[in-house]
């Protein structure tokens, strides 16, 4: 009995070795990438978890302090809780809306002629073209009467004095969300456009024969189910993006923003990492964010896999 089990493992091992030998060129092809991947993606994650249990300020060697960073984060850091709340609100709104907007627009575009479609894809994609395009929103919502929104509101007599949009904690988050939604037709949108273009139209024709009456039925019964892989992929991208919001917040609302209204987990992380050099604490924040992103993503992929089954 034991002997045969041993034999089974031995033949298995032998087969694996044979396969590795036959396909060994594959290792050479992936080696350069995987090496860099280990250094710049895998190692940082591991290091981050490691330093999160230490006190480390770069100048002195790190020393182990156990769960202290985490307990401080959750029990003693009010600003972190504000940042967490802001990030969750931001992600809950921009994630789904941006995602559906990308899909719906790509879907509406796919029926147009090539030339018109190319022009529209280009126009829709403009905001994502440059990472600094959102600075224009700072101008729109500028607090003096030269700000575009203020001047329009003043002109129509809706307000009497200019509103300090980006200095008012009530307005900061909505403006950041608006600007992000405007920028949300990015990679996901391109993915949808490309995959809808490559979509096999004979499926739709077959559907028409089978009694699909309008394009909404087409979408629901034919297009969506066959696009599950792309839907999954873009959902993953959206989650990762939504939770790592920082540049847009700190550039529009400043850092720190008024009452921390535009403070997110990542700005909190950069505050401790790049400004205060409390690397251990920053790593604890990063680890929490990492766990948050991964678990939301796992939940979402589970959910999308269930759809239509």
């Amino acid at each position: 009995m034991e002997h045969s089990l041993f034999n089974k493992y031995r033949t298995k091992l032998h087969e694996t070795a044979q396969l590795a030998k036959r396909e060994r060129a594959g290792y050479l092809f992936i080696a350069p990438f995987m090496l860099l991947f280990c250094v710049f993606t895998l190692a940082p994650v591991i290091i981050s978890v490691f330093y999160s249990f230490t006190y480390y300020n770069i100048l002195e060697p790190a020393h182990f302090i156990g769960w202290e960073n985490y307990s401080r984060l959750i029990l003693n850091d009010d600003v972190f809780l504000i940042a967490l709340k802001n990030t969750l609100v931001y992600a809950a709104i921009t994630g789904p809306i941006g995602y559906f907007m990308s899909f719906i627009l790509a879907w509406l575009l796919c029926e147009l002629g090539t030339a018109l479609r190319s022009v529209l894809v280009f126009l829709f994609y403009i905001p994502s073209m440059s990472s600094s395009m959102y600075t224009i929103w700072a101008y729109f919502f500028s607090g003096d009467s030269y700000g575009l929104i203020n001047s329009v509101l003043l002109e129509f007599g809706i307000i009497n004095t200019p509103i300090l949009w980006l200095q008012n904690s009530k307005y900061i988050m909505p403006i950041i969300i608006l600007a992000s939604l405007w920028m949300s037709l990015g990679t996901s949108f391109l993915t949808f456009v490309a995959s809808l273009q490559a979509f096999d139209r004979t499926l739709l024709e077959a559907g028409a024969v089978d009694g699909v009456r309008n394009r909404f039925q087409e979408l629901w019964y034919i297009t969506l189910p066959s696009m599950r892989p792309q839907l999954l992929f873009t959902a993953v991208l959206s989650v990762a993006q939504a939770f790592s919001v920082s540049d847009i917040a700190s550039n529009l609302a400043g850092m720190p923003s008024v009452d921390y209204a535009g403070h997110t987990i990542v700005t909190h992380l950069l505050d401790y990492g790049n400004i205060r050099f409390e690397m251990g604490y920053a790593c604890a924040i990063a680890t929490v964010l990492f766990i948050l992103m991964i678990s939301v993503n796992k939940l979402l992929t589970m959910f999308i896999r269930r759809i239509g089954k």
Binding site: F40, V45, Y51, V236, Q241, L270, A286, F290
Partner: peptide, 19 residues
């Protein structure tokens, strides 16, 4: 690789700097 798409490089900004 697919797993690493689930988080962004901002998470690893600090240790990347150290490396």
């Amino acid at each position: 690789i697919v797993f690493s798409i689930m988080f962004t490089s901002t998470v690893t900004a600090i240790p990347s700097y150290i490396i």
